[in-house]
Amino acid sequence: MRMMITCTVNGEERTVLADTRDTLLGFLRERLGFTGTKEGCGNGNCGTCTVLMDGAAVNACLVLAQEASESEIVTIEGIADGDKLHPIQEALVAHGGTQCGFCTPGIVISAKALLDSNPDPSEAEIRHAVAGNLCRCTGYGKIVEAIAAAAAQRR
């Protein structure tokens, strides 16, 4: 079935025709073209599709697009300020906290959700915050360092 869905994505209200079965992930990627959000496992295990939904980090593959109707979504495309990277993104670049880059959008969103609610996280809290984001390249050392540095810079 086809139906209209209205939600706010990266600060802009969007009304788009969608399929009743669309996940939020498919809706963002295929209907709206926000392909920065990646599909990894499609089952809520890997966290590459993490987006903010009304401020909370969620796996977009585990949300129906219809459930997001009237919600506020932030994807990786909504994190930088124009050409200026977000401090979390800058820190990931500076610390080499990215390799193939596939998990990076999800990591950035999880880190943002953490720092928005906890500006001074411990290392354990940082590790817990990205535990649902699998990275198979770098290991987590540099990612954790980068998030800690971003937190220090924002304070």
Binding site: G44, V58, L62, A129, A131
Partner: peptide
């Protein structure tokens, strides 16, 4: 239960 992303839902 699951990750923070899962616990949020």
């Amino acid at each position: 239960v699951g990750s923070l992303q899962v616990q949020n839902r």
